[in-house]
């Protein structure tokens, strides 16, 4: 969402992971464990390795989903691509010279590759977002910073109604203004030179 992304229908899976929905986690294992086991065991690994890769991939996805990552391809292709990249890294780490994966074209797509790249770059995008907020006009900067910064004592985020009260604005006006500020933020980020260094989506 550093630029406007249209979430894929499978975005709900990421949301369910964030919510620790154990039935969705179980369904992810049920539906995709065979695919990942084959990926790893057909490429020099054991079932245990497949389990580790699967779990690491889900943790990475979970962490970034917590931070607002938006999925724009099917979860299946995405998970496969993230796991494939992890297994390639592991093979390199183990000193394997041969680091091509057999049969990967069956599941991965260009858009899934982009999503996997974006997952790796998500933290950098958040840093860019924080930096861009600082460059905004004072009213937008104040609104976004107040809305997105937890109270130092309670560590809780303020409700928008509290922000409105704090800024002496009506709730309805603040909602509209905040939405405009978010749109302006996206535009600014898209035009930031640092953004072009991150893989475009």
């Amino acid at each position: 969402m550093s630029t406007q992304h249209i979430p894929h229908d499978d975005q709900y899976i990421l949301e369910a992971l964030v919510q620790h929905d154990s039935s969705v986690v179980a369904a992810v294992y049920r539906d995709y464990s065979d695919m990942i086991r084959a990926l790893v065991t057909e490429n020099g690994g054991a079932t245990n390795d497949a389990g580790d890769v699967f779990q690491d991939a889900l943790i990475d996805i979970y962490r970034q989903a917590q931070r607002g990552y938006v999925l724009t391809c099917s979860f299946k292709s995405f998970l496969y691509t993230v796991c494939r990249n992890k297994w390639l890294d592991e093979l390199r780490r183990r000193g394997r010279m041969e680091v091509t994966i057999k049969g990967s074209e069956r599941f991965t797509t260009e858009i899934a590759e982009d999503n996997a790249d974006r997952l790796d770059q998500h933290e950098e995008r958040l840093a860019l977002l924080a930096a861009t907020v600082e460059t905004m006009g004072p009213s937008c900067r104040d609104i976004l910073k107040l809305a997105w910064t937890p109270h130092s004592q309670t560590n809780k985020y303020p409700a928008l109604s509290e922000v409105a009260e704090q800024l002496g604005l009506s709730y309805a006006y603040l909602r509209k203004k905040k939405s405009e500020c978010e749109q302006a933020l996206r535009e600014k980020m898209k035009n930031a030179p640092e953004f072009t260094q991150l893989k475009d989506q």
Partner: peptide, 12 residues
């Protein structure tokens, strides 16, 4: 929802 999560993650 993602925008709000990103904002909170970036600034908070």
């Amino acid at each position: 929802l993602s925008m709000q999560r990103q904002g909170r993650a970036a600034l908070g």
